[in-house]
């Protein structure tokens, strides 16, 4: 298995990193807390041009999402590129073309009242990302079938994470006719979305780790940088190890999906479990290494910590993925 990035992939990574660092500073993330429309220019001027990645190799989309995760970019990008685009490709090619061209946004409503992303026959859908601000909502129904609809009444579910807004919606009764979708296709695209979310978490974990290492080199106590204390050094080494192996696991899962390799199902569970574990480890450990300053509202650390926790419980937590993995390995 060859992890060497192609020249194009390296360029993509560098361009995305520079763009997002410039265009999505934490001041914007904080402005979005008060007013979600604060990130509209980021979408209009930049991110819409990158939705096309959703129609290419997952490896490339993951490289990009790692960078959006590293700035915890708010807005419809993840919902549109990682959830809606692959689903709509199976049910409405015309709309798919518009989405890929950056002309329409969308999200997916699948999780039922329990919050699990499995097919539900209930009348409500929960954890629907950005449901109030996208152009289309694709509701997954038993069958499985998919109902694509325009604006729907959506109730915001307040969570710890302001950077990804999630909603509860009522399944519409007599709107447009639902379209059938292959169950295997649905599984495939959920797997894609799971790995995509894991890639985003990797970016978030990277920011937490890098900021922590940088801070402990600067902060002086007992006349020396706190990063020279072995107790903190080993904490950071263990965080870095979890981060490194998770990052590699996510790339592997993306490669396996791109190659339709039979390992891809296991790899997707491994990727999300490893990424969730790494992100929470870097969040908790990072906060501890920062001490009190990290616990203040002014410091950006809590924005990342919140995103890490919220993403861990979206599309399956570590334990949920381990249980699915156990089914594949043992049964």
């Amino acid at each position: 298995m060859d992890f060497t990035l192609t020249d194009e992939q390296e360029l993509l990574q560098q361009t995305a990193r520079a763009l997002l660092e410039n265009e999505c500073p934490s001041t914007l993330v904080r402005a979005h807390m008060q007013d979600p429309s604060a990130v509209d220019p980021l979408w209009d001027k930049h991110l819409r041009d990158w939705v096309a990645l959703a129609d290419g190799e997952l490896v490339d989309l993951c490289l990009f999402l790692t960078e959006t995760g590293a700035v915890i970019a708010p807005g419809p990008y993840f919902a549109t590129a990682a959830l809606f685009a692959p689903l709509i490709k199976k049910v409405d090619r015309r709309l798919h073309d518009a989405v890929i061209a950056g002309e329409a946004t969308g999200t997916v409503a699948m999780a039922g009242p329990e919050g699990e992303w499995t097919i539900s026959s209930a009348s409500k859908r929960t954890f629907v990302p950005e449901a109030d601000r996208v152009d289309y909502v694709a509701v997954v129904l038993p069958g499985p079938r998919v109902l694509v609809t325009g604006g729907l009444p959506a109730r915001q579910m307040e969570t710890i994470d302001t950077t990804r807004r999630v909603f509860e919606i009522e399944v519409p009764r007599d709107a447009a006719t639902p379209v059938e979708i292959d169950e295997a296709d649905l599984t495939d695209l959920l797997e894609r979305a799971t790995v995509a979310l894991a890639a985003e978490l990797i970016g978030t974990a990277r920011w937490l780790l890098d900021s922590t290492v940088a801070y402990t080199k600067e902060r002086i106590q007992f006349d020396r940088p706190v990063g020279s204390f072995q107790g903190l050094q080993w904490k950071m080494v263990d965080m870095a190890l979890d981060y490194e192996r998770a990052a590699a696991a996510v790339s592997y899962a993306a490669m396996a999906i791109d190659a339709a390799d039979p390992e891809r199902h296991r790899a997707a569970h491994v990727a999300k479990a490893a990424a969730g574990r790494a992100a929470l480890h870097c969040a908790r450990g990072g906060l501890q290494c920062h001490g009190g300053i990290g616990y203040t509202w002014e410091h950006d650390l809590h924005l990342y910590l919140r995103r890490a926790y919220a993403s861990e419980y979206l599309l399956g937590s570590v334990d949920w993925h381990l249980d699915r993995l156990a089914e594949l390995l043992i049964d």
């Binding site: 298995m1 060859d2 992890f3 490194e244 192996r245 998770a246 990052a247 590699a248 696991a249 790339s251 592997y252 296991r266 790899a267 491994v270 490893a274």
Partner: peptide
Amino acid sequence: QSLRALGY
């Protein structure tokens, strides 16, 4: 599996 990926 994640360590394997990291090695590669």
